[in-house]
Simulated assay, not measured.
Amino acid sequence: MSEWGTFEDETPAEGPAESEESWGSFTDASTQPGPAQPTPPPAAPPAGVPTPSPEVVASLLKAGETLWAQVDGTVGVLGSGAKVTAVYDDGPDGFSGWRPVTVLDPGALTVRPVPLALAEPPMGAATSVAELYADTEPLDDTEPRRPAPFPVGQGPDLDALLDRAVEEERARARAEAAASARRAEAELAAQRRELADRAEAVERQARLREERAQDEVRRAQDEAARQVAAVRDDAQRQVTAARDEVAQVVQQWQFRAQQAESERSRLSEELNRANRASVQRLVLVGVLAVIAVVLAVVLK
């Protein structure tokens, strides 16, 4: 019973409805002798798949788009399990099952089922199936089909055909060779230009590197000259300071030598005076001794 739909004039009044699921059925309720049979609910999505909320479904729908839904009267269910409201222009047409619907208002979840074309097309509006698949050239059953005899001496000149084919192949080979030569020349010219560009770029980079190296050398020379000048100035300052210190020491030693010389002179003079004083005392003692002797002699 798995089919898109069935078009029946009436539904059996007795017995339960078919348990197998079908794509849809078209029934005429006015011809049913008994009460209307209950319609099975639309199929739910597979187990484990959650039904999206109406807000999510409304955000995904667009007004005017056409999609499939399982419609039963004014109730429709999309493939995701979301329910929509079916609106008809002239009332339900009695078809229950899967059918295309057009979205009217995504926010309100309202759709309009696409009308089903059930009438026969008018004559001449379409081509019949028999005419579509008819053989345009029917076989002639009166005579059996036999192959014709080999056309001896008929047909074109094979030598001319071979010569023409050889000439065409030669022309094609020449054209291909010329095209290959042109492509090779173009590729060679492109490679030469690329090599020239690369050589120019390498030369430009080499010049830049050389200029940077020269700048580095000049900066190093300037730095060395500044360092040498600083060392020379420092050495000059140290030499000057050493000379000044030596001069001060020499002056101090000269001053001390002068003081020592003056002290020596003073001591020499004092020694001389002491010597003279001792000589004088000796002379005086000698004279006193002589006088004493003379007095002693005289007194005796």
Rank of each mutant, 00 (worst) to 15 (best):
E3A: 11
E3S: 07
W4N: 13
G5Y: 10
G5A: 08
F7Q: 13
E14S: 09
G15S: 13
G15D: 10
P16K: 15
A17E: 08
A17S: 12
S19N: 15
E20T: 15
W23I: 06
G24W: 15
A36S: 06
P38V: 06
T39Q: 12
P41F: 01
P41E: 06
P41M: 02
P46W: 07
P46E: 14
G48Q: 14
V49Q: 09
V49R: 08
S53L: 06
S53F: 02
V57Q: 00
L60D: 12
L61E: 09
A63P: 11
E65D: 07
L67V: 03
W68I: 04
A69K: 03
D72W: 01
T74K: 14
V75F: 07
G76A: 15
V77S: 03
V77Q: 07
G79V: 01
V84Q: 02
T85S: 10
Y88M: 00
D93H: 08
G97K: 02
G97M: 02
P100H: 10
V101W: 04
L104P: 12
P106V: 02
P106G: 03
A108D: 12
P115A: 09
P115D: 11
L118H: 10
A119W: 03
M123E: 14
G124K: 12
A125H: 02
S128N: 07
L132G: 01
A134R: 14
A134Q: 11
D135K: 11
L139M: 06
P144T: 01
R145N: 06
R145S: 05
P149Y: 04
P149F: 02
F150P: 08
P151T: 08
V152H: 09
G153I: 04
D157P: 02
D159S: 09
R164A: 14
R164H: 13
A165M: 06
V166I: 05
V166A: 09
E168M: 13
E169T: 12
R172P: 10
R174A: 10
A179R: 04
R183Y: 07
A184G: 05
A186E: 15
A189S: 06
A190I: 00
Q191K: 14
R193P: 00
L195K: 09
E200K: 06
A201E: 12
V202G: 10
E203C: 04
R204H: 05
Q205S: 12
A206R: 13
E211S: 04
D215L: 08
R218D: 10
R218P: 00
R218L: 11
A225H: 15
R226N: 01
V228Q: 05
D234V: 00
A235E: 02
A235N: 04
A235Q: 08
V239H: 06
V239A: 09
Q251S: 15
Q252N: 06
Q252S: 14
F255C: 12
E261V: 07
S268H: 11
E269W: 09
E270N: 07
E270C: 01
E270A: 11
N272C: 12
R276S: 10
R276A: 14
S278C: 06
Q280C: 09
V283E: 15
V285I: 10
V287Q: 04
L288P: 05
L288R: 11
V293R: 05
V293E: 08
V294E: 00
A296T: 08
V297L: 13
